[in-house]
Design a protein around this nucleic acid. Structure first.
Length: 813
DNA sequence: AACCATACATTTTTT
DNA sequence: ATGTATGGTT
């Protein structure tokens, strides 16, 4: 371990934050200003320079990913492994408290953790028993009301007292029942974990004292995202003597809708008297133009302290704005533009960010069509997939067969002849006897109104679980899982020719390897002699498999882009209704959050930033005319270079001829011209977006968008793209030519893997293949790798099909 | 118990 | 358009 030269490695502000002593400090860390650095170096500094015992330090984050990264960095810095400081999520921290002292707040010894879908089940049930029909309110709305009550530390009793309208009164009733069901199930939901931790600290002085005595230094990441309950927990942990370093950025607060209180960061000094606040404004990520443009945007917000980011990286390129006809046109342009950047960048360094997941479709289709490698960061999270939840439920049953939710979940999965009749009678009977269904099965009591067939099936189920319990005593977790899969016929139920089923099988394989990982990681952890319980906790708190494959353009929502950075970023769909979103336009606070969302998106970009707008967009099946986002007008024109789709002018009678529309509207957000027209920017004949305009300087007061018309309007299209000759610069998508038919020979793709092939040459993107039944087609997209790879193939005359490499039996032509 | 038709909604996501 | 949830049918 080498000694770290803190003063030399850190900039002035960072150094001050890292070496701060005394009262609570708030570090306002602008985007890309090295916030993780501050936390990690501070831990290192405390240990190395101040001789603090690592176990007296805790750093709390929101995501496992952030925690893992932090932990890794500190371990590397200090050369200590494993590091005995707590570095983890709020929930994991709370879990640790509750596993130790949970009984003090009336939790059972081995309570289980419910995920969102479990919660949903309970809410629906609670609605029923509270006499609130589930068609009167959406269960989801009720659940989120309960959740937000919990986030504000409001229990059912107080909620009921304060309920003053129809909806909240109903929710109050459901809340009560919901808590009863939770208790019955012996579980806590995510919100309760925090709430009960606070309760524990507040009602058990002895324990609180012990906890505070042990925890000397607390660091909180993404402080702007904390909710009331989390804030209360922080206060309880700090007490009057602890050291707190809170790091955050109010301009990046985008989780108001799930309870985050910006006030926690805005009013820090009021909450912690004597607090010190410092700002980190030097940015190490983006060009100055990106910083200035995004800074000008977010300056429109009122709820902020205010800061101005700067960089030594230089001005950089103009921000490109493209006005598209519709989402297909938009997708085409984006893919073209990104392709144009491949001279300098790899696809893995690029991202397309959207406001809603639905926007993803058109983009994905275009990339499949063009053979552009991409990875979609979205979809169902790993541990919420049905097959995974089923197998985990089996594990839970093994540990605790009384676990009602898990019991119900797998009782007939895969189907084993325990239908609705049988299960309902079982549940009725168990209620009548006042036992859990499992206890009833185990008791050997008569199951009478149940059919003899049902009884046999139930007996077999019971024996199966008992057998698994027996096996689990001597087998490691992965082996137990394999045994479950085997004995239940879980995989056997799948059709190996169905790509969806194959994906499920793969997920199960992944579960097995994640169990294997876990066991290896905890090979020496003697404190948790109960590995199975630890694994189940782990599963409940880790939602994704993380680290989706790199090597392609990342496509994701603005929310999931937080914390990431890319060389080139496209923000798609800068339209009213989308950004700001419909549902966020009436409340000024919501509107500010939408602005922050755009700010977060813009500040993800290191070198290139592009914004796109559609004139109309297909939403929920029908085309809607779109207005461009008011936020665009808040970005000073001198940073922008605007380009229009030539398609905008192809059918004037449709009414999206741009200039006329704008003028007639009189400008909903003020009529001043908003952009530097920057019309001279083009990729046509150039080398893609790498060539930016030199004539987009200020003084754009009188330029009209119509300038663009004369430039692009009629002349440029078809010729321009073909004139560019090289495949890498395909006319920026503005030409009708490029738009109507994609280039016939997409650039060769570098795949992170080369799947094995059954016959003939290599299966790779763009390869032509023959299928026995479907004929000849072209591979457009590959998901997964090796023989299990799922292929998207366009068959001539048949259309798009999804196949699995090893079963498709393809001949490569 | 699997299957199909119909209704329905559809911001954002972590733990 | 598309996925999910539900209810009725086979």
């Amino acid at each position: 371990m080498t000694t770290i030269d803190f003063a030399k490695t850190l900039n002035e502000g960072q150094y001050a934050a890292v070496t701060h002593e005394g009262p609570p400090q708030l570090v306002i860390a602008g985007a890309g200003s090295g916030k993780t650095r501050v936390i990690t170096y501070r831990i290192a500094w405390l240990v190395q320079e101040r001789g603090v015992d690592p176990s007296a330090i805790a750093a709390v984050t929101f995501t496992n990913k952030a925690a893992a990264e932090m932990k890794g960095r500190v371990e590397e810095l200090l050369g200590l492994y494993p590091l005995r400081a707590f570095i983890g999520t709020f929930h994991r921290f709370s879990l640790r408290l509750l596993r130790m002292y949970g009984q003090r707040v009336q939790l059972p010894k081995d309570f289980s953790i419910l995920d969102t879908s479990d919660q949903m089940t309970l809410v629906k049930r609670a609605m029923k028993s509270a006499g609130v029909p589930d068609d009167s309110f959406r269960p989801r709305a009720v659940l989120s009301a309960i959740s937000s009550a919990k986030n504000q530390l409001m229990g059912p009793a107080r909620y009921e007292r304060e309920a003053d309208d129809f909806f909240t009164r109903k929710v109050a009733a459901v809340y009560q029942h919901y808590q009863a069901l939770l208790r019955e199930a012996g579980g806590v939901d995510f919100d309760d974990m925090i709430r009960l931790s606070v309760q524990l600290m507040r009602t058990q002085p002895t324990i609180a004292q012990r906890v505070r005595g042990r925890l000397q230094y607390l660091m909180v990441d993404e402080f702007q995202d904390t909710n009331t309950a989390q804030m209360a927990l922080i206060e309880e942990l700090i007490g009057t003597r602890g050291h707190l370093t809170a790091v955050g950025d109010e301009d990046q607060g985008i989780y108001r809708w799930r309870g985050a209180e910006l006030a926690n960061i805005l009013e820090f000094e009021e909450s912690f008297s004597g607090a010190e606040v410092r700002k980190l404004e030097q940015n190490y990520r983006s060009t100055q133009k990106i910083l200035d443009a995004s800074g000008a945007l977010v300056a429109h917000n009122e709820k902020r302290r205010g800061k101005v980011l700067w960089t030594e990286a230089g001005d950089g390129e103009q921000i490109l704005v493209f006005r598209a006809r519709d989402e297909k046109d938009e997708a085409r342009w984006i893919v073209n533009a990104l392709e144009g950047l491949t001279d300098e960048l790899s696809y893995g360094q690029m991202a397309i960010l959207v406001r809603t997941n639905a926007q993803t479709r058109a983009l994905e289709e275009e990339m499949i069509k063009r053979g552009t490698p991409y990875n979609l960061v979205a979809g169902v999270r790993f541990f919420e997939r049905a097959e995974i939840k089923d197998l985990v439920a089996y594990l839970r049953l093994i540990r605790q067969p009384e676990d009602r939710l898990s019991f119900e979940r797998v009782l007939n999965r895969p189907a084993r002849g325990i239908g609705k009749q049988t299960s309902e009678r079982l549940y009725e009977l168990s209620t009548k006897k006042g036992m859990t269904p499992w206890a009833l099965l185990a008791s050997g009591l008569s199951l009478d109104p149940i059919s003899s067939r049902g009884k046999k099936a139930l007996q077999r189920f019971h024996d199966l679980i008992v057998e698994m319990q027996r096996l689990s005593e001597n087998l490691p977790i992965p082996a137990v899982l394999r045994q479950i899969v085997e004995s239940t016929g879980y995989v056997a139920q799948y059709d190996k020719n169905d790509p969806d089923d194959v994906a499920r099988i793969e997920n199960i394989d992944e579960l097995l390897s994640s169990a294997q990982d876990f066991v290896e990681q905890n090979a020496y952890a003697s404190e948790s002699d109960d590995l199975l319980s630890a694994f189940l906790d782990h599963v409940a708190l880790v939602s994704d498999t993380d680290g989706l494959g790199r090597g392609g353009v990342s496509v994701m929502t603005l929310h999931s882009a937080k914390g990431l950075e890319f060389k080139a970023v496209v923000l798609a769909g800068l339209e009213e209704g989308l950004l700001p979103h419909f549902n966020a336009k009436s409340d000024p606070d919501d509107l500010e959050e939408e602005r922050r969302l755009l700010y977060v998106g813009m500040t993800r970009a290191e070198e290139r930033l592009m914004l796109t707008v559609c004139r109309r967009r297909r939403m929920a099946g029908t085309y809607q005319d779109q207005d461009e986002s008011r936020f665009l007008a808040e970005i000073p024109g001198r940073f922008l270079a605007v380009e229009h789709s030539s398609e905008l002018f192809e059918s004037p009678q449709r009414g999206y001829g741009y200039g006329s529309n704008r003028d007639s509207g009189g400008g909903r957000y003020g009529s001043a011209p908003r952009y530097g027209s920057g019309a001279t920017w083009t990729t046509a004949g150039g080398s893609g977006p790498s060539r930016s305009s030199s004539s987009t300087s200020g003084g754009d007061k009188d330029r009209r968008v119509d300038d663009v018309y004369s430039f692009f309007g009629k002349a440029a299209p078809a010729g321009a793209s073909s004139a560019s000759g090289s495949t890498s610069a395909t006319g920026g998508g503005t030409s009708g030519g490029a738009a109507s038919k994609p280039p016939s020979a997409p650039a060769p793709m570098r795949l992170p893997f080369e799947p094995e092939t059954p016959k003939g040459g290599a299966i790779k993107r763009g390869a032509r293949v023959r299928h026995a039944k479907l004929g000849v087609g072209k591979i457009m997209h590959i998901e997964g790798s090796g023989a299990n790879a799922r292929l998207v193939i366009y068959f001539e005359g048949v259309g798009r099909r999804k196949l699995v490499a090893k079963y498709a039996n393809l001949d490569v032509l």
